[in-house]
Nucleic acid binder design. Structure first.
Lengths: 337, 337
DNA sequence: CTGTTAGCGCTTTCAA
DNA sequence: TTGAAAGCGCTAACAG
């Protein structure tokens, strides 16, 4: 079990003081003889020395770590987001700690606390809004950016999708295609802004065209709630052609599985569409109409905002909530002919 | 911008020395008056104090961080693995740093170096085997466990799927069903043990039944290589019923998209099956036969092995390579009637 | 039962 | 152009 090489040893081998080595490490070559510089360089390579970031961080209370806290690392939204964040942070010399909360308030709190103890330099998170007080405290000394879901917390910025607009657009598209009704399938709305806005967009679009909203509440923890959705469709058969629009990709997955075995005729009697763009939209026939969220830009914006806020000369921004546009991807599942 | 609370302040407020506070933090109450104990407890809560893990780590060169380095955080295999690792590590008081390499050797090297600089206490990785020297060095002072792909590196343990057996089983299943040939679709085998073993299992099963292996090499970076696969199938139409078996889920996704528009009759003229269990296996009709890897157990084993190896009294283990069993999940896509 | 003190590896004045 | 020395927040002998 070899010991790690320290700055001491480098200095000793190079015949200089640790101060000089430290200067070298931090690229402050201004006044340093070419000779010492090269000597240190050689020794560092020889010894395969790497500065201990823990020690470096201890001095200035900086860890050079930014944390991304998401509900579920398996969700395509989160994966794409995390990748985008990485791509911005890594070149900037920061590493990313990825944490999962499962949407659980207590777990989120524990994560937040452990992250603070680790002196993370920045925090990007997708939250249910159950720990806003803690976030407020954290934000007083660490840059915090909310993604996907926004909450009004002093000093905290947010980046979100244009949920309401996109939802309205999709609903309108369905109605324009000729579907007489659109059943909207969603989970409990509660405090999650995203769900709220999507629902609002749906309702607004219905009202605008004089169609009565038809909302079906489900719960992913209770599979039988999905059969209610199917039942509702069966019952209203005389209203066909109608459409089903799910508030997110996970719901569509559940619904779709039940639907195909019912032998519903898509898209002519039943149109289907979803928020999110699951990876299987092009594997099914007809292909699935969906809303592609700007995950990449969301991640980039969040990471850049963190970087901005970590800069010494940071001044509070004009925009507290950044809204990014999503794209309606037309599949064959809503092409009524 | 509030400053962080330190152990100093807690000690001052509590009217004790920092040593006592430190003892309290580390749960060494053996000899400590109930009174001081409660006093400290109160002060800590009042001040919302949290020990600085950087400083704690600096002392013993321990960061209480374990890193998981994977090829792609979007792969279901990796997601499931990471979650399992988290579930073992979190209760043990470690946090997990997740890193992505994209299968790129240089990027992997950079990640490994930055991880060392961060003094990670353990390393779990899925590697292409291009930095085995570096890993060898790392393993001399940090527990290292390889997942998914194994390489023979001193002091490094591995956990892998029973690739060869599973591949053999699946191929045999296809042949037994009555498919006269099985086309095996794979990427370049090279040094990646996983691909090697799956190919071997396939070949062995073919030979055992006197069927000539029919291998189709593709490259996900070059979409046209997939059309070659389709062409090959078209050409051999007289050999039907035959089957296509892909070496991983990503390949099946590509192939399947091309296949369905060709109007091939699955499963009666064409059987399809894949290694891995994509999330859409039950969304398509017929449902897809596949091999479910023991991702959960793999993650658990890896994390536990790291924990084991971090213990002071660690003795080199008997098993250097742990092989875990996967499951053949029967879908309708290989049910020849 | 409690405190003093010497570091952990590094950065950063300040002085030479 | 360089180095000595004082910490950063915490732990762990060692001494009371």
């Amino acid at each position: 079990v070899r010991k790690r090489v320290t700055i001491q040893e480098v200095a000793r081998e190079a015949g200089t003081s640790i101060t000089t080595v430290s200067r070298y490490l931090n690229g402050r070559y201004e006044n340093m003889s070419q000779e010492t510089k090269e000597k240190i360089k050689k020794i560092i390579e020889m010894l395969d020395y790497q500065p201990n970031t823990l020690a470096q961080g201890l001095k200035g209370n900086r860890s050079r770590i930014v944390a991304a806290v998401v509900v579920n690392i398996g969700y395509p939204y989160c994966v794409s987001l995390i990748r985008a964040i990485q791509d911005v942070l890594t070149p900037a010399g920061y590493s990313l700690a990825v944490c999962e909360t499962g949407g659980d308030a207590e777990r989120e709190l524990r994560v937040l606390q452990s992250l603070q103890a680790q002196q993370v330099d920045g925090l990007i998170l997708q939250t249910n809004g159950d720990n806003n007080e803690e976030l407020h405290k954290i934000a007083s000394r660490t840059p915090v950016v909310l993604v996907d879901r926004t909450f009004s917390i002093p000093r905290v910025a947010s980046v979100v999708t244009d949920n309401e607009v996109a939802s309205n657009t999709l609903t309108t598209h369905l109605l324009q295609q000729g579907y007489k009704n659109v059943m909207y399938v969603t989970e409990e709305v509660g405090q999650i802004s995203t769900r709220d806005q999507r629902l609002n967009g749906y309702i607004a679009a219905c009202c605008a065209r004089g169609v009565e909203p038809w909302i079906c509440w489900v719960n992913r923890a209770h599979p039988d709630t999905f059969s209610h959705a199917i039942d509702a469709l069966e019952t209203k058969k005389d209203a066909r052609p109608y459409a089903v629009y799910t508030a997110n990709g996970l719901l569509m997955k559940e619904i779709y599985e039940a639907l195909i075995d019912e032998g519903m005729h898509i898209p002519n009697l039943l149109g289907i569409a979803t928020f999110d763009e699951p990876d299987w939209v092009n594997l099914i026939r007809p292909t699935l109409t969906c809303i592609r969220q700007p995950t990449q830009e969301t991640g980039e914006w969040a990471a850049n905002e963190i970087l901005r806020r970590m800069a010494v000369d940071f001044v509070p921004p004009v925009v507290e909530v950044q809204v990014l546009k999503s794209t309606l991807v037309y599949g064959d599942s809503t092409r009524l002919s």
